[in-house]
Each structure stands twice: as structure tokens, then as C-alpha cells.
Amino acid sequence: MSFIEFDNVSYSYSAGTKNEVKAVKNVSFSIEKGELVALVGHNGSGKSTIAKLMNGLLLPQSGLVKVNGLDTADKKNLFDIRKSVGIVFQNPDNQMVATIIEDDVAFGPENLGLDPKEIRERVDFALKSVGMYEYREDAPFRLSGGQKQRIAIAGVLAICPEAMVLDESTSMLDPTGKKEIMEVVTRLNREKGMTVIMITHFMEEAALCDKIIVMNDGSVALSGGRQTLYDDRLVELGLKLPMSCSVAKRLNKSGMNVGEVYTPEQLAEAICRSL
């Protein structure tokens, strides 16, 4: 049994009406505990829909979604499923409930019905994990986008989920903000063993993940380990490769063998070695 299982899942918006949009079509995949997974694809390829299917915000019209073996279609399971899979959305402004940062982070654990002392501990822990502890008594609107998004991540962390889905959570951020978030997320994955699902169309981020699922027009077009980035079909789908991958690919083609590299540092090293 995998941690998160999608079994032939389909979902349409406004199903049964003239405006029906088939957002997800017969999708199957599974994610194991502790994996760092990238879910990539063009706008409108169904990534956000998949994210919402993962913890029962949306329910599949056909097929099954299971988290820890619990079916999301069963209402009784939803609370437990949401305790183990949290989602950080794209726009940090639309995820905050409270006017004070620590109150906002407390929202999740408060919903779990924990006692005040434990909530406090979790809030402090979550804020420290994302490096925003000193700001706990401030109002969120004075923060930068990256800081706000870190608060949103803390809000999910405080629930202590097993998996965190980040739905294009870095797309509205500047390069520094993007880097901040990626650092926090990879650290959580490495040190705390948290399963992380990064939804992104920024391939540099996908290159940092262990596993890549590529969506196209509602279906899974490709999936596999990091080497998927060297699959020629990715280019055919019109996705832009990370700079280091595309350079390495061309070097390989022109006879200078640098192998498969995923970061600029690795690329530089490989080039030095082959010279």
C-alpha cells in the first residue's frame, strides 16, 4: 500500500452541464512516504485539481483516491486525511484567517482540538522551522511575499502532517522568495522525512526533486525519477528545461560527455571533469 494512491481518477468541473471541463482524466500514480515529488505541467493541465483531490477538497467522479489506505470519498475519513495531507496554495493572501501571524498559524491545531499548551508549542515550532518566529506578533500584511508564504507553510506544519502539497506556492514570489521556500521545503523533506509534493512550472524546482510527474491536458504524460528531465518527450510537450539540463544535453549531443546533471554546480563540476 502506497501513502497516496490515485487509481484511475477523473474529475470534471461543472459536470453534466454545457460548460463541463474535464480537468483530470483517468489519472493513476502513487507517492510513497518521504518522497520529494514534483508535479509539473502547463497552465490548465490539471495540477491544482490533482492537489485538491489529494485531501478531499474535491472528490473524484470516477476512480479512487486513497491516503494511508483511507478513501477520500468517505466523509468520515476526511478529517484524518486532512490531518495527514496539508496544502499550501498559490496566493498567500488568500490563506490567512487571522490578523496576527501566530493566531493564523494556530488556526489548524485549534481545529484539531488540542489543548492550549500543545497548540502554543506547535505554533512556536512551526514558526521556528520556517524562520519567522520573531515576527509572531506582527500583522501579516507588512511582510514580503516570501515571508507570507513561509507563514502559510507554518500554518500547515503546525498541523504536523505527513505530507505537504505546495500548489505553485513560489510562483508569485521573486527569486529570493522562491529560494527561501525551496530551502525550507527541501530541509523539511531531508531532516523531518516529510513527504513533499511540489506543484510548479518552474523546472529548476523540479530538478531538486526525487520524482517527477508531468501532466498534460488532464493526463499523466510522463513520470519517473529525476532523469525524466532528460526525456525528449518533455521538450515535445513544450516544457522549458532547467538551464543546467539543457546545456548538459547539448554538450552530450556535441560529443562532450558530461552525463546527467541537475544543478548549475553539478554542471560546472562535470564540465571541469571532462576537460
Binding site: 485531501n55 477538497l57 478529517f79 486532512r82 490531518k83 496539508g86 496544502i87 501566530e102 493566531d103 494556530a106 488556526f107 489548524g108 491545531p109 485549534e110 481545529n111 484539531l112 482540538g113 488540542l114 489543548d115 492550549p116 497548540i119 502554543r120 505554533v123 500554518g155 500547515v156 498541523i159
Partner: peptide
Amino acid sequence: DSRCYRGAKGRTRMK
């Protein structure tokens, strides 16, 4: 919803 909100039922407060 994603942060386990179920209304007032079973909810506690930090402060």
C-alpha cells in the same frame, strides 16, 4: 477546509 476546519465542533483556542 484543508486546515481541518469543521466549524466550532471540537475546536479549542490557543489563547
